[in-house]
Amino acid sequence: MIDSQQASAALDDINDVVRRVRQSRIYQTASLIIIMWGLLVFLGYIANYTWPPLGYAIWIVTDLVGIAGSIGIAAFSGVGPGAGAFAIRLLMAFVLFIAFGIFCSVVLGHFGPRQMLVFWPIFTMLFYALAGLWFGYAFIVIALGTSALIVIGYFYAGPALLLWMAVVHGGGLVVGGLWMRRI
């Protein structure tokens, strides 16, 4: 038989493994969603660069496909009990976040195309960073790394900003998602 100290150490060990498994499952699902968004926005930037007048339509389609794909991946990944209610709360938080972004960028800010181009990616990266406080440091690393590169492009990429965004935003998400799957 073991004493209470050894029993307590065994339970701590169990809790540590359970925490790792939960984080791993979150990373496995989230990384797929992040990679998908990376590919989508990469194509979006390239399409926007190729057909500038269709910019708004391109991004509406990109976002709708992305949202549908995210819901599909989350549903297909299989989640534990209580995860459905949690996913709805997360979705509501995201909707509020986006509503605030629209209020800032359109109503208050009257951003031009260049500002708009960098505002939304950085704003969504802020959501990733906040999520990282609960779900793991990988989200924060991806958010901060991608945002820093976007800001550099805003100041220095000049007319090639759309191409820069395709590489650092789209490519950054794909690389970040692949990295997340390995940790």
Binding site: A10, D13, I14, V17, V18, R22, G78
Partner: peptide, 17 residues
């Protein structure tokens, strides 16, 4: 199950659906 690594294996598998 009591062996430390087997305990960790079972904890990991039990944490899944």
């Amino acid at each position: 199950i009591h062996q430390p690594l087997r305990l960790r294996i079972m904890a990991a598998l039990n944490a899944l659906p």
